[in-house]
Computed example of a mutant assay.
Amino acid sequence: MRSGTRRVFGSSSNWDQINARWIWDNIRNRCEKVCWHRLVWFPGHIPKFSLISWMEILDRLPTKDRLSRFGVVTDRGCGMCSSGLESRDHLFSDCAYTKEIWTAILLSCGLSQAPLDWNGSLQWLLLNLKGKSLLVHILKLA
């Protein structure tokens, strides 16, 4: 651990600069941002919703299909429509109940397009939102 500490702190004689932010910037691995980061992390985001969205995009939500792989649940059926297996793709795009909700949301936003599959929806969001709300984007089109 001493070598790791020396690597991080080096021969820094200015201990006033060392704070949590400085330590975080020096120990984290910096990677290229993913294309969808602005859909999840933006000014004014609600952390709980951003975390759920992040898990959703990475397909890490505790859906029944994932939980069944760990032996946590045995019934993998969708609890909303009672047909199909509960997975991220099913819950957010394939479920009949979900399709009705998305259709109502899109219509209330002035869009008459049919709900897309999971990958199509994500691509549409990446192309159309650009970190702004859907309503702002639609108002600019009008």
Results as ranks from 00 to 15, higher is better:
Met1Phe: 04
Arg2His: 05
Ser3Arg: 08
Gly4Ala: 04
Gly4Asn: 04
Gly4Leu: 03
Arg6Thr: 03
Arg7Ala: 02
Val8Leu: 05
Val8Tyr: 01
Phe9Arg: 02
Phe9Asn: 01
Gly10Ser: 11
Gly10Leu: 04
Ser11Pro: 00
Ser13Asn: 01
Asn14Glu: 06
Trp15Gly: 01
Asp16Thr: 09
Ile18Gly: 00
Asn19Thr: 02
Ala20Cys: 07
Ala20Asn: 06
Trp24Leu: 13
Asp25Pro: 00
Asn26Gln: 05
Asn26Trp: 00
Asn26Asp: 00
Arg28His: 14
Arg28Asp: 04
Arg30Met: 08
Arg30Trp: 08
Arg30Val: 07
Arg30Pro: 02
Cys31Pro: 00
Cys31Phe: 12
Lys33Glu: 14
Val34Arg: 12
Cys35Val: 13
Trp36Ser: 13
Trp36Glu: 10
Arg38Asp: 15
Arg38Ala: 12
Val40His: 03
Phe42Thr: 06
Phe42Tyr: 15
Gly44Ser: 09
Gly44Tyr: 09
Gly44Ala: 07
His45Arg: 14
Ile46Tyr: 12
Ile46Val: 14
Lys48Met: 08
Ser50Tyr: 07
Leu51Ala: 03
Ile52Trp: 03
Ser53Met: 11
Trp54Thr: 04
Met55Thr: 00
Ile57Val: 15
Ile57Arg: 02
Ile57Pro: 01
Leu58Pro: 01
Asp59Phe: 01
Asp59Val: 09
Arg60Lys: 14
Leu61Gly: 02
Thr63Arg: 03
Lys64Asn: 12
Lys64Trp: 08
Asp65Cys: 10
Arg66Leu: 14
Arg66Gln: 08
Ser68Pro: 01
Ser68Lys: 04
Phe70His: 09
Phe70Thr: 05
Phe70Ile: 07
Phe70Met: 09
Val72Met: 13
Val73Gly: 04
Asp75Lys: 03
Asp75Glu: 07
Asp75Pro: 02
Arg76Glu: 14
Gly77Met: 10
Gly77Cys: 09
Gly77Asp: 10
Met80Cys: 06
Met80Ala: 09
Cys81Gln: 03
Cys81His: 02
Ser83Cys: 11
Gly84Arg: 11
Gly84Met: 09
Glu86Lys: 00
Arg88Asp: 00
Arg88Ile: 10
Arg88Trp: 00
Asp89Glu: 13
Cys95Pro: 13
Lys99Glu: 01
Thr103Phe: 05
Ile105Asn: 04
Leu106Val: 05
Leu107Tyr: 11
Leu107Met: 12
Gly110Asp: 11
Gly110Met: 10
Leu111Asn: 08
Ala114Val: 06
Leu116Ala: 04
Leu116Ile: 01
Leu116Thr: 02
Asp117Trp: 05
Trp118Val: 01
Trp118Ala: 03
Asn119Asp: 09
Asn119Gly: 05
Ser121Ile: 03
Ser121Val: 09
Leu129Arg: 09
Leu134Cys: 13
Leu135Phe: 10
Val136Ala: 14
Val136Asn: 11
Val136Gln: 15
His137Ile: 11
His137Asp: 13
Leu139Tyr: 06
Leu139Ser: 11
Leu139Phe: 10
Lys140Pro: 10
Ala142Val: 04
